[in-house]
Amino acid sequence: MIAYTLLAGLLFGLYFSLVALGLNLVFGVMRLINLAHGDFLMLGAFLAYGLYSSAGVNPVYAIPAEIVAFVLVGVALYYAVVPRLLSSRDPEMLSFILLFGLSQIIEALAVIAFGNSQRAIPATVFGIRPVSLFGQTFPAAWVVSAVVSAAAILAVYFYLYRSRLGHATRAVMASRDEAASTGINVHRVSAIALGAGLALAAVAGAFSPFMLGSIEPDMGIGITTVSFAVIVIGSLGNPLGTVLGGLVYGLGLMLMETYFPSWADLLPYVLLILILLIRPSGLLGKRVRLA
C-alpha cells in the first residue's frame, strides 16, 4: 500500500511539476504571477480534446501543435501588453489587474465556445493494459503523463542551462537592466519565455483529463492556485526548483488521498500555509532563488 502510494506520488509529482513549471518560468523572467496560468492550461486541454474528438489524435501527438500554438500566443500576448505595461506608472498593480481580467475573459469565452459541460479523453487512448513499475501496477495514462512531464522538465533544463538563449534568459531573470546593457534584447527573450511558459501549461493541459479530472471552462483558477503552491514550496523564480515543489505536492496528495481522502482538497492551502510559516523562501531557499 505505502509503496503504491509513494510511486503514485512520484508520477503525480512529476506531472504537477509540469503543471507549475511555466508559471515559475514566467515569474522568474517577468516578476509577475500569471493569474491566467490555469486558464491557458484549460485552453491546452480543450485543444487536445478537440484534436482527439475530431481526428482521433492521441494527446502525445498533440504536443507539437500545443507548443506551436501557445508559443505564438505567448509571444503575441507579450508584445501586445508588456512593453506598454512596463512604461506605465504602476506596472505591478496594473499587471495584476490585467492578468486577473484576462483570466476572467478566457474563462467566459471558453464557456461561450465550449458550453459548461464536462469533457474527457478516455484513458484507453494509451491502451487498456496497466503498466507495472517496481511490482506495482498503474494506469498507462499516469505513466505516459509522468514520462512526458519528465521530458518537458529536461527540455527546460537544456533551454535554460545549455543554450545561448537560455543563458540570456537567466541573465534577464537576474536583472533586466544589466541584461539590456550586455546587449541582450530583453523583450525578445522575455516574449519567448512567456511563450514557453504558456506552452508548458498547454502541454500539461493535454494530459489533465487523466491526472486532474474532466475538462471544464472554469478549471483554471484551481489550477493556478495549485501551481502557485507548488512553486512557493519549491522556489519562487527558480524554474527547476518547481520539480521539488511538484514532488512534495504529488506525494502529499497521494498520501492524503490514501489516508485522509476527505481532506485532500485542502492540501494546496495547508502546504502553502506550512511553507510560509516554516520556510517562506521555499525548500530550496534564497540561495537558489535565481535560476
Partner: peptide, 20 residues
C-alpha cells in the same frame, strides 16, 4: 554598472554573454 555581473551565472557564462 556597479553590479556588473550576473551572480546566478558562472564566470564562463557571464563572459560569453558579454559577446551575446
Amino acid at each position: 554598472s556597479e553590479v556588473g555581473v550576473f551572480p546566478n551565472l558562472s564566470i564562463e557564462e557571464n563572459l560569453k554573454l558579454g559577446g551575446y
